[in-house]
Design a protein around this nucleic acid. Structure first.
Ligand code: ZN
Ligand code: ZN
Ligand code: ZN
Ligand code: ZN
Lengths: 144, 144
DNA sequence: GTTGACCTTAGACTCAACTCTAAGGTTTAT
DNA sequence: ATAAACCTTAGAGTTGAGTCTAAGGTCAAC
């Protein structure tokens, strides 16, 4: 039976976070002292570690809630339900990567066009590109 | 002289957003009617378009504030200051991409290991991997 | 028998960039 | 002269995942 600070030490999740997760239905202490202190069993520890792993894998707390309900009753959930959650997350991640790569390209083109030197910015091609509004594929070299 | 709704139509930024940007020092109307209505000049329109382009390039409002101060006084700012802002943003974007790619790999490995079928999740390898906690390079095939 | 470390709760605050609401004033057209 | 369509402000709400505070109760050690 661990106190909250001990579970915190085991999992690396802060006591605050553990209480927050409890409020959100993810992790509950199986036992309580008379005074109301939380006491966590080994099963609680495993559940908390599962939550932490899932969180580190990028799942949202809502996703984790679903994964946990699979976990407590594997017989009435299917592999498909699990892959659905995972695939959905992967789609989301892929989407964000694509967005960021487009941004990356834009910024790279901007950077390549500017001399980056100590001269004043009167003819800075980054400024010109931002002024133009169209630069995703035509940022020219510094003029002058 | 454009009213706020007209500037909104020109730029695609909502009137709400334009007022919000004003509160944050990005875009101000050069003129006002007696009753206090904002009236925007052509220069204001260009400034607003600059802000919009910068925003679409991924710059934060704070970054945009800095870019705008370069813009209004190019002589006392250098190309280097502009590249610093841009490079910093690019580093940030690259960092996020790397994080997401690591997530992407994790999720892909998880997905590849699971059959995704309608059978129950008793031996689901995604669940097992999350239970294990270590799966970034060793997620095995579904164990029957 | 009290200090100090720990625990409890409810609820406020953080970040960023909006987004919306309430309550009211103005302009334009009919 | 009145309704519709616009404008103003201050300020609250949204999102997600925490993070922190206040005000107090409990427990172990010395
Ligand atoms: Zn230069
Ligand atoms: Zn430059
Ligand atoms: Zn399966
Ligand atoms: Zn499976």
């Amino acid at each position: 039976m661990l106190k909250i600070s001990e579970l915190s030490a085991r999992t690396g999740l802060s006591a605050h976070t553990l209480r927050f997760y409890e409020k959100n239905g993810l992790i509950t202490a199986s036992n309580h002292s008379e005074a109301g202190y939380r006491f966590y069993t080994d099963a609680d520890v495993r559940r908390a570690e599962f939550v932490k792993t899932a969180r580190n894998s990028g799942f949202s707390l809502e996703d984790i809630g679903q994964l946990l309900s699979v976990r407590v009753d594997k017989l009435s959930h299917s592999c498909q339900q699990v892959t659905d959650i995972t695939q959905h997350k992967l789609d989301e991640v892929n989407g964000k990567i694509a967005e960021l790569q487009s941004l990356q390209q834009t910024l790279t083109i901007l950077l390549e066009s500017c001399c980056g030197g100590p001269e004043n910015a009167t003819h800075c091609s980054i400024m010109e590109a931002l002024e133009e509004g169209e630069f995703r594929n035509n940022a020219g070299r510094e003029t002058s």
